[in-house]
């Protein structure tokens, strides 16, 4: 990113000395490597530092409104987790249901239309899907609000109502991927000899899919679900922007704009660890669902 917080906040008319003064006050003039280790050791102690913005220009002023990064992030993170969580609760069961049923009736009209439709939704970017929803469900038929404006006092029911469109958007962009993967993981397994054996021992179509194929398909399905969960959390950056939702994604975008590095770093750290933790979870599910790995010889 060109420039830093000092040049950004003081504007183009700032004198060189005032920029220097702000820099030394924030510690931006120190060498990057010691600064990195200082930040790292603070992070390990749970201290993400203070936000650059909102601080008083006069030193020692009682009205210093600079806030701790943690304070700033936690409410936003809660909002984002709420949005992602609700979207996941809608998208995952729906995707599994559609994927399994598409595998069950593969090559039928239903299967073709479901896989075709999911291809369209996966290919459309969030802002496009989001604005289509706004156009349809907020402008032409005003059922839901265009802006998902929540604060700490908003009740749970209102939250569901306000976040409906962002949830729809996130569901639509992630569901297709999960559904298609579930379908193909199951269909892959359907050509195994043990599936033919199950058929020859009288198993119904439903049993073949749910009892015989699905348990062997969990590993790839878990993999794609967790990737999409991570994508929802991080992809919410765009959705939050579209619906002006006070989540961590919007905070990050705003902070990047201001070069408010401590906040950006904390957000990036949260996003990165989400990926790591969710992938670890997928691997664990892969092990638990496979008796070969769970019970060695």
């Amino acid at each position: 990113m060109p420039g830093d917080f000092a040049t950004e906040i003081l504007g183009q008319s700032a004198t060189k000395s005032s920029v220097e003064a702000l820099r030394s006050e924030l510690g931006l003039d120190k060498h990057p490597i010691p600064r990195y280790f200082e930040w790292l050791s603070n992070v390990f102690q749970g201290d993400f530092g203070s936000s650059f913005s909102g601080r008083s220009k006069v030193q020692g002023d009682q009205g210093d409104r600079s806030r701790l990064v943690v304070e700033l992030i936690i409410p936003r993170l809660k909002n984002t987790l709420f949005l992602t969580g609700v979207s996941a609760l809608v998208a995952i069961p729906l995707a599994l249901l559609l994927g399994i049923s598409a595998a069950l009736y593969r090559n039928s009209v239903y299967d073709r239309s479901a896989t075709g439709f999911s291809l369209i939704t996966v290919s459309s970017p969030e802002f496009f899907t989001g604005y289509i929803f706004i156009l349809l469900l907020a402008t032409l038929f005003p059922v839901f609000p265009t802006i998902a404006n929540v604060n700490e006092d908003t009740s749970l029911i209102d939250r569901f109502y306000l976040t409906a469109l962002p949830v729809f958007t996130l569901t639509l962009v992630t569901m297709g991927h999960m559904m298609r993967m579930t379908r193909s993981a199951i269909i892959n397994i359907l050509s195994s000899e043990y599936i033919e054996m199950a058929k020859l021992s009288g198993a119904t179509r439903y049993e073949v899919i749910v009892k015989h194929a699905l348990p062997n398909a969990w590993a790839p399905i878990a993999q794609v679900i967790t990737i999409n969960l991570a994508y929802m959390l991080i992809g919410s950056v765009v959705v939050e922007f579209v619906f002006n939702y006070q989540g961590i994604g919007r905070l990050m975008v705003g902070s990047v704009y201001n070069r408010d590095i401590p906040v950006v770093q904390a957000c990036a750290l949260i996003f990165a660890s989400t990926y790591v933790i969710l992938n670890l979870l997928a691997d664990l599910i892969g092990i638990i669902s496979n008796p070969r790995l769970l019970y060695p010889k």
């Binding site: 000899e193 015989h212 008796p291 070969r292």
Partner: peptide, 14 residues
């Protein structure tokens, strides 16, 4: 009932 050639592949591993 049916007994297949490759028992290893014909039992469901799960």
């Amino acid at each position: 009932s049916y007994v297949a050639q490759s028992a290893a592949a014909s039992f469901n591993p799960a």
